[in-house]
Amino acid sequence: MPVTSAPPSTHADGARSSRVPALAVRGLTKTYRGGFQALKGVDLTVEEGDFFALLGPNGAGKSTLIGIVTSLVNKSAGTVEVFGHDLDRDPEAVKTCLGLVPQEYNFNLFLPVLEVVLNQAGYYGIPRREAMRRAERSLRQLDLWGRRHTEMRRLSGGLKRRTMIARALVHEPRLLILDEPTAGVDIEIRRSMWEFLRRLNREGTTIILTTHYLEEAESLCRDVAIINRGEITERVEMGEMLARLRTETFVLNLKGRIAELPQLDGFVFQHLDDGTLEVEITRDHTINGLFEALSRNGIEVLSLRNKQNRLERLFLDMVDGREAAAREDAR
């Protein structure tokens, strides 16, 4: 019997979910006025129920991709489907499924929190009474109910971001897209936001998130895509990607000075100055091992820090790797 395509599933019937992806982007290109090509044929599929990280260095095209999916940016070519609805053919259905927390503030600074959320509900066609109920729920979930009469401009950065999350949830979207939701948010609020997003995902909302903190993606996301200069370069599970982080570099502050670099198996040292060492640890060695070896050599460490954001490291490795491959191809 021929299989007809299943109707888009709802939260309740997760069993059918694997058939219609939450997001399917094909051959997406974007050339900005002035000729800059920000997306060069992006293909990307995100399954329903996933918690998905979209990672990439500044200017990679993350916000452009999200902008196209959420109807804020016109695409140059390609197709976008959200839960099986085509963006060109049925934009209203696509928009109904989507919630967006944008990278930049985009609310009226002079309106109180509650009104921002209620207006958004109104734009989605949710009648006033129902909108009130939902606004209360989503503001309470994000600990903002007590601030509902505060004007947006009087909120701290973290609360502004949280209001944007509450606003994005008021129409109960099946796919929530967050563009750097925790930029400039302190660690405590960040953790409570993580907890909130995890619960939302468990309850069935598909989530796509961009971030510059690998810790964030690592702790939240199951799948990841890396985008660089407008192209998807990786599309893997989180665990697999972490395994690619071949080395990590630390900077050690020493007690006392050392004259020459220690020679220890598996660790590559470099002098920064007399009291500071840089050490590169490969994946198969541990920090414990490093300290044991240093102690044996009578070197005492006062403090250590990560030399680089690990995500930046990954991007560098990636670019290096491809350049190396390209050199080999050229030979």
């Binding site: 959420t70 109807s71 804020l72 934009p91 209203e92 259905a93 928009k95 109904t96 989507l98 967006l100 944008p102 930049e104 503030y105 985009n106 609310f107 009226n108 600074l109 921002v116 207006n119 958004q120 734009y123 989605y124 066609g125 606003r167 129409h171």
Partner: peptide, 17 residues
């Protein structure tokens, strides 16, 4: 103003025709 302060986006992402 809604363009300038970007809150026009609240309407653009919504299904309002």
């Amino acid at each position: 103003s809604s363009k300038f302060s970007r809150f026009i986006e609240e309407m653009l992402v919504s299904p309002a025709p």
